[in-house]
Amino acid sequence: MSTTEVRLSGFGGQGLITAGIILAEAAILDGKNAVQSQSYGPEARGGASKAEVIISDGDIEYPKVGDADVFLAMSQAACDKYAKALRPSGVLIVDTDHVKNVPAFSGKTYSVPITKIAVRETGKELVANIVALGVLVGLTGLVSREALETAVLDRVPPKTKDLNKQALAAGFAAAEEILGKEGE
């Protein structure tokens, strides 16, 4: 039975809880089991925000993530707090626009200018969470790209479908570029 635990953390307002929900929905579309949970402060915007997703082929009992297999950090504070809670062979993805000090880590670290890509490719910082999902799935293959795209389009407001599609494609492209460089 394979189980992957994912943590997404940053500021409130970055859309990471939505991103967690979309990731879990994509896993379900892939026929897998998924649980998503979250924690947040009293602030609607600007406070700390954390979403956790567990994806598994079997039952998921304990719904919280302990040491994550994949950690996306979109703020320095989140990175400092949770970098330690990563499996040694795990994957750390940081948004270089928000995380300047990347901790040393035994697993794989990917530094990606996620927010910058969102602004550059779509003109909207708002969709950085969707870019992040594209990057995360592009790098890890945690769910199928098709399922992720379906899940994104199911969740977002109809008027923003094209924008989000663009953001997701930008995320996938960024991941491909990184993996391409690795392969060189």
Binding site: I28, L29, E146
Partner: peptide
């Protein structure tokens, strides 16, 4: 399978 609609996330 990327479009399994039997279940939902709630």
């Amino acid at each position: 399978m990327a479009n399994d609609r039997r279940a939902q996330l709630l």
